[in-house]
Amino acid sequence: MIIEFLKMGGYGFYVWLSFLIVFTFCSLLFYKTRKTLKKYEKEFAKELDKLPAEHKKRIAKSSKVISSILASKNKLS
């Protein structure tokens, strides 16, 4: 039955190949996008660390962007 399913009435090669291609390229783009996002989040956090402490504290409270980045960075570590 499983062999029957994989064969797809003789069209198995074409059906599986097209689904495989779609799946592979979609995951590739996903991982590439996520990698870039993480990279920039990390770099941003590093830059933030360089700032003087009280300045950092002040903007961390006021900026939503920074709190979002810090939140997702904390989740990682």
């Binding site: 996903f30 996008t33 989040e41 770099e43």
Partner: peptide, 26 residues
Amino acid sequence: LYCALIFLMKYKTEIIKIKKQNIKRL
């Protein structure tokens, strides 16, 4: 849904890129 996910992640990356350039002015 997949498109939306990729789009949001890319958009966030772009915002972070801009904010990083302006970090000194924050």
